[in-house]
């Protein structure tokens, strides 16, 4: 195959979390892969497992109560499914970087931006051999360079600012700068613009897009907003109740959505041009993951569901090249 080897490959990944009420079957056979330099988005509603998939893969979900039931994770050719804590931390520090919804939570209010940025650069340096480590001057220079890379005005001056002196958009830029410190191969952005205003969101989206093109790193955007994902990503993965229901290029997903859930989601979005006369809502509510529906997890809310849907979990099938759908309608029909 001509396709490049994927940077991150998640195969049949299942995760459960035990709670007072019972065992939550949070993820059920997730498949997801990201090629080097590719921008992929995961969309889905609250509780669909989009965040926990990623957090679990990079070892940020405490176990117990969480437990990986099945599946494998490969990163850059290595199997990291059962990698020990130190290995995971090394990968998380150097090769995978993350940014989150609320930048203030991840910045220490007591230290200046410069101090925190320098700390991150030094921490990344510590993973390198002694000879390649930077001295004080070049660390400072690197900090300035990172801030100008994220288009923060007056980077030298901003180094002396405390987080509370910056606006939400600037904080998110600082967080992105920190993420870039280790020259990661993969940037994971978990709802990166949800806390920001529309005009600031546009700036950050432009920045992320620009960085992906300039630095050639892969980016995984997690968002509930299909617009945000559409603005950055080439490929979109739609999740529902702990399963991947559709995986397609951005174009194919919007032009030719296949899964009934994806179609329902698209019909539920109010349009800026007023083209949606009335919004179609998906009947019912998201299922309880302690006792998820048998067969297709979407079947109780699906207007097109048949007997097969109630019995068997639909396999993920490649309908058109690069367009995967997990729905019985497209694989042997609905019984």
């Amino acid at each position: 195959m001509a396709e490049p080897a994927p940077l991150l490959e998640i195969r049949d990944y299942s995760l459960s979390i035990s709670t007072f009420d019972g065992v939550l079957k949070v993820l059920d056979g997730i498949n997801l892969s990201i090629a080097p330099g590719e921008a992929v988005g995961i969309v889905g509603e609250t509780g669909c497992g989009k965040s926990i998939t990623v957090k679990s893969v990079v070892g940020l979900v405490p176990s117990p109560p969480a437990r990986v039931e099945a599946g494998s994770v490969r990163f850059d050719g290595r199997d990291i499914t059962s990698a020990d804590e130190a290995t995971i931390r090394r990968i998380r520090g150097q090769e995978i970087a993350m940014i989150f919804q609320d930048p203030m939570t991840y910045l220490n209010p007591l230290f200046t931006v410069g101090r925190q940025l320098r700390d991150v650069i030094q921490a990344k340096d510590r993973l390198k051999p002694q000879s390649e480590r930077r001295d004080k001057r070049s660390i400072q220079a690197k900090a300035v360079e990172l801030l100008s890379q994220v288009h923060l005005p007056n980077p030298e001056r901003q180094l002396d600012a405390y987080p509370h002196q910056l606006s939400g958009g600037m904080r998110q830029r600082v967080l992105i700068a920190m993420a870039l410190a280790g020259a990661p191969k993969l940037l994971i952005a978990d709802e990166p613009t949800t806390a920001l205003d529309v005009t600031i969101q546009a700036q950050i989206l432009d920045l992320v897009k620009d960085l992906v093109e300039r630095l050639g790193m892969a980016v995984l955007v997690i968002s509930h907003d299909l617009g945000v994902v559409a603005a950055i990503c080439q490929r979109i993965v739609v999740m529902y109740a702990g399963t991947v229901v559709e995986d397609a290029t951005t174009e194919a997903l919007f032009e030719n959505p296949k899964h009934p859930y994806t179609r329902g989601l698209l019909a539920a979005i109010p349009r800026l041009d007023g083209s949606a006369d009335s919004l179609a809502s998906i009947a019912g509510t998201i299922p309880n993951l302690i006792d998820p529906p048998r067969g297709c997890r979407f079947h109780p809310r699906c207007a097109e569901a048949g007997e097969t849907c109630r019995q068997a979990k639909p396999p993920s099938l490649e309908g058109a090249p690069g367009h995967w759908v997990a729905c019985h309608i497209y694989g042997g029909g609905v019984g």
Partner: peptide, 14 residues
């Protein structure tokens, strides 16, 4: 104008 233009649209082509 800029507010409306800043909204990322849920469609293939921005």
């Amino acid at each position: 104008q800029s507010l409306l233009s800043a909204v990322p649209l849920p469609q293939a082509k921005q």
